[in-house]
Amino acid sequence: MTALHHRAEGPATAPVLLLGPSLGTSTALWDAVAPELSATHRVIRWDLPGHGRSPSSLIGPGATVADLARLVLDLADSLGVDRFSYAGVSLGGAVGLQLAAQHPERIDRLAVLCSSAHFDGSAMWQDRAETVRREGLEKLAATANARWFTPGFTVPELVEDHRSADPEAYAACCDALAAFDLRDRLREITAPTLVVAGREDPATPPAHLREIADAVPGAALTEIPGASHLAPAEQPEAVLAALRAHLAGTSARSGMNVRREVLGDAHVDRAQGRQTPFTARFQDFISRYAWGEIWTDPTLSRRERSLITLTALVAHGHHDELAMHVRAARRNGLTPDEIGAALLQTAVYCGVPAANTAFAVAQRVLEEDAPGN
């Protein structure tokens, strides 16, 4: 089956984030943002049909945003991705709204940038579709800077993407925008939602984003100064900060899953049960960074991480933590002999007294957890 062209970055085991483009652009729209997001997520950028390297045959006259959303789900399915977070710009943002409303079981967190739940009726988009089918994209591409960026700013690669898009596929995307109006379904969206407006955006002014934020339950709105319609290209640092903060909930949940897998439900439940408003941010910090970023990094296996952790805890004399991580090491597949070998190594590099105490701690834990006890 022919699928949308895509580009994947980041650890294969990290939470998945799909990034959608605006009309007339390609995956290059996210060039200044995606590499940074890939530190904590498996980032998958995709091209619209007839844009970038996606086949134009994937779309035809009378297409809808729901059709584009189906192509995105087909892409996710082909990659074995069941649930994912999603961020999209303009038409890409409309696809995100469609996905969140129609397929809530697939969307973890949603970010809608410089987009709308409707694009000011059908007449303008029908006219544009007819013009492009008749004349091609050269004249329209010549006005891209004025529609996309604040005065004096440009990204030549994106303007060239506009110029080189397939006219028929571009016109079919215009058909989709002409027919799109999701205002009556916004309240159905249950995914945590961030809405981002470019304060200088003439195509989808901040009022359009406020309309989404007001209707989607619990949605947050961020306005970015100095940004027009393609905010990720014009103000990447501000967009990155907003997306990182919004997506952090995904990393925290992923980190909590890993924390439970390594330390066990009983330990984590006790820690959560002792949590107070004073310690809540620290518990979130542990889940997000220690377990959501370090322990999910695929560079080292969990067995290797357990070995490293054991020696570090011996070196610093953290004996309560050592006991916890001896149990974690067993869950991660280390045998008692391998744990003993790691502790023997610490006798050389951390000192015999430190290793002596560590062996006593490990012996107690291994006996307590032995079958029959």
Rank of each mutant, 00 (worst) to 15 (best):
P236C: 05
F84Q: 03
L79A: 05
L4D: 05
P11T: 05
P55S: 03
G10C: 08
Q98Y: 08
T25M: 12
M324E: 05
P225G: 11
W30T: 09
G60A: 01
E261G: 02
V326S: 06
A69H: 01
A241Y: 00
P225Y: 05
D108V: 15
V72H: 03
Q98K: 11
D166V: 02
P353M: 01
A191E: 12
E237Y: 00
C173P: 08
A165G: 07
P236F: 07
P156Q: 10
R128F: 06
L243E: 09
G264L: 00
T25F: 12
A215S: 15
A12V: 13
Q345A: 04
L310A: 05
V365M: 00
P192E: 11
A328L: 06
A355P: 01
R53D: 11
A191C: 13
A355G: 06
T279C: 09
A129Q: 05
T154I: 07
R45W: 04
R42F: 08
L68M: 12
Q272C: 10
L182M: 14
G92H: 08
M256I: 07
W148R: 07
R53N: 10
S78H: 08
A347S: 03
H229R: 09
D127W: 04
V216H: 13
W148K: 09
S115W: 14
D127K: 09
G121P: 04
R327N: 10
R147L: 14
V196G: 13
L194F: 13
E293G: 08
A171R: 05
E200D: 15
H325D: 01
A362P: 00
R83V: 14
P192A: 09
A231Q: 10
Q98S: 15
S116T: 14
A3F: 01
W148L: 12
D320Q: 15
L186C: 07
Q283C: 11
S287I: 00
R45P: 05
P15L: 03
